[in-house]
């Protein structure tokens, strides 16, 4: 009978854990949604400015999250275009060329890079900016470019790992077919292996975009500010969505501003959810497609 009790207790505990976790997440996110749903409107994005004028950059937007969204978008675009070539190339190198000790030690370094607290990556970006400011030019200070670089460093290990894993998980037959037909190693990689592992790599890239879009710790040390309007150049300050949410939470002046914070939180959550769903879909769709032939 005691055994039955233990059995029941353990099972109940597992279900309770699931319930507790679901309830916590649903509670936190649900609260943001319920409180912030009312603030979702065009004026959340554009304030008092006419949407078309804002979108065509004809007029400045105050009291709206449009500049922050543009800032985040620019930032993500920049850092991804820095990180993807380096990350994917490193991933290919790790999967196809590195062997033995080199592979082991490089792998260790990338694991460390993946584990470093993001604030340290931001701090590194900040130190580099200050270093360049003293050594190269006064015009360099924490700015959009420095943030983009630091964010690229942050997502680099993810890109390396996803690329490497996608390549290494290819079945052996795929790997030997092309060389058997006389393809060189590079031809094999670019004509066979990369296309075959594309789904894994692309979903890794999309998840990295998500990480860039949501990160706050890195950018708060490397040039993001509360009000800057649209970023004017690579060396200027900029606004970003996650930092906007952070600032509102710590120093909102009135109810309207707070509601704008809720709105921004919903928008950021929606963007991240969208990217996440996209990455999941691509991974499943593309791998089905590749597994079961072209349809």
């Amino acid at each position: 009978m005691a055994k039955r009790m233990i059995e029941k207790c353990v099972t109940a505990f597992a279900w309770l854990s699931g319930l507790l976790l679901t309830a916590s997440v649903a509670g936190l996110m649900g609260y943001v949604f319920v409180k912030g749903a009312g603030s979702l409107s065009l004026s959340l994005f554009f304030g008092d400015t006419a949407p078309m004028d804002a979108l065509l950059f004809r007029r400045q937007v105050f009291d709206g999250i449009f500049p922050a969204m543009v800032g985040t978008l620019t930032l993500v675009g920049l850092s991804i275009s820095i990180a993807v070539p380096v990350g994917v190339a490193t991933g290919i190198y790790m999967a196809e060329y590195a062997t033995g000790r080199t592979k082991h030690i490089f792998g260790l370094f990338f694991d460390i890079l993946a584990g470093i607290p993001s604030i340290l990556v931001g701090f590194f970006g900040f130190s580099v900016a200050v270093f360049l400011h003293h050594q190269v030019s006064d015009r360099i200070a924490p700015c959009l470019l420095i943030s983009a670089l630091a964010l690229a460093f942050l997502v680099l290990p993810y890109l390396i790992r996803t690329t490497q894993t996608a390549l290494e998980n290819l079945p052996r037959q795929v790997r030997v077919t092309a060389p058997a037909l006389g393809a060189s190693p590079i031809q094999t990689i670019f004509y066979v292996l990369l296309p075959q592992s594309l789904s894994g790599i692309v979903s890794g890239i999309i998840l990295s975009i998500g990480r860039c879009a949501e990160d706050t710790a890195v950018i708060m040390l490397t040039g993001v500010v509360a009000t800057a309007g649209l970023p004017s150049s690579l060396l200027s300050n900029y606004e970003a969505l996650p930092f906007f949410i952070y600032t509102i939470s710590s120093q909102y002046a009135d109810h309207t501003e707070l509601m704008r914070g809720y709105g921004a939180a919903i928008v950021l959550l929606a963007i991240c959810a969208l990217l996440f769903t996209l990455a999941t879909l691509i991974r499943h769709r593309l791998s089905d497609h590749l597994l079961y032939g072209g349809r």
């Binding site: 996110m29 949410i245 952070y246 991240c272």
Partner: peptide, 11 residues
Amino acid sequence: TGIPTVVYGFA
């Protein structure tokens, strides 16, 4: 894993 940390903090 995809929920932004800042949104957790905000909530």
